[in-house]
C-alpha cells in the first residue's frame, strides 16, 4: 500500500509547474525526508570501511516514493533534480555535524568520480566540495546544477543532457570545464 507521502509525491511530480514555489517546496520536503531516512541507515553505522552511494539512495527513494507509478519524463527529471539537491544537503549536513563532533579529526571525503562514491576518511573533502559548489553557484548556475545531477543524482552525461535540455556534446564540453574548475578549487583547499 502506498503511503500518503508517496502518492503526494507522484501527484506533485505530475502537476507542479516550474515556478510553483509552494508545491516545489513541498516536493523538496518530501523527497528530503525520505532520503534522509534512507541515508541515516547507512551514515549512522559509522563504519569506516564502508562506501556510501548517494546515487543508489536517490534510486531507492525514487522506488519508494514513485515506484511503479508511470510518471512522464518531466516528472522523472524533476524528481532527479530535486533529489540531487536534497542529497547534497543531507551529505553536507552530515559532514558538518561530524566535523563538529570530531573537531576535524574524521572528515568525510568523497571520490570525485562520475559515480559519486563516498567513503569515510578518503578522497575529497565533502565540505570543501560544498564550498566550491557554493562559490560556483554564484558564477554559473547551470554548471552547478550539472554537478548536482551528476554527483548527487548519479546521472550519466547523456541523462544530464536530457534533463537539462542540452545536447550531449554541450554537456561533455561543459563537464570538461566543471571538472577542471573543481579539481583546481579542491586541490587549493587540500593545501595545508
Amino acid at each position: 500500500m502506498k503511503s500518503s507521502r508517496s502518492s503526494r509525491v507522484t501527484q506533485l511530480l505530475e502537476k507542479v509547474e516550474p515556478g510553483d514555489r509552494h508545491a516545489g517546496e513541498q516536493l523538496f520536503a518530501d523527497v528530503y525526508t525520505e532520503l534522509r531516512a534512507l541515508a541515516a541507515r547507512y551514515l549512522h553505522r559509522e563504519r569506516k570501511d564502508h562506501t556510501l552511494q548517494p546515487t543508489a539512495l536517490v534510486h531507492e527513494a525514487y522506488l519508494k516514493l514513485v515506484g511503479q507509478t508511470r510518471v512522464d519524463w518531466q516528472g522523472r527529471a524533476r524528481f532527479l533534480a530535486i533529489a540531487a539537491q536534497a542529497m547534497r544537503q543531507i551529505l553536507v549536513d552530515h559532514a558538518r555535524r561530524h566535523r563538529a563532533a570530531k573537531r576535524g579529526g574524521n572528515r568525510h571525503r568523497i571520490a570525485l568520480d562520475d559515480n559519486l562514491v563516498i567513503k569515510s576518511n578518503r578522497n575529497v573533502d565533502l565540505l570543501a566540495l560544498e564550498d566550491a559548489l557554493t562559490k560556483l553557484a554564484k558564477l554559473d548556475l547551470r554548471q552547478t546544477q550539472m554537478i548536482e545531477l551528476r554527483f548527487f543524482g548519479g546521472l550519466s552525461i547523456a541523462e544530464v543532457a536530457k534533463v537539462m535540455g542540452m545536447s550531449k556534446r554541450s554537456v561533455e564540453r561543459e563537464w570538461t570545464m566543471v571538472r577542471a574548475w573543481l579539481r583546481r578549487e579542491l586541490s587549493r583547499s587540500d593545501l595545508p
Binding site: T51, L52, A56, Y62, L63, R76, A77, K119, E159, K162
Partner: peptide
C-alpha cells in the same frame, strides 16, 4: 570498498529515455 546500498544501477524508469 563495500557498497552498502546495492541498487547500483539506475532503474530504467528513472532514465528519461
Amino acid at each position: 570498498g563495500k557498497i552498502l546500498s546495492p541498487l547500483a544501477h539506475l532503474p530504467r524508469e528513472l532514465v528519461p529515455a
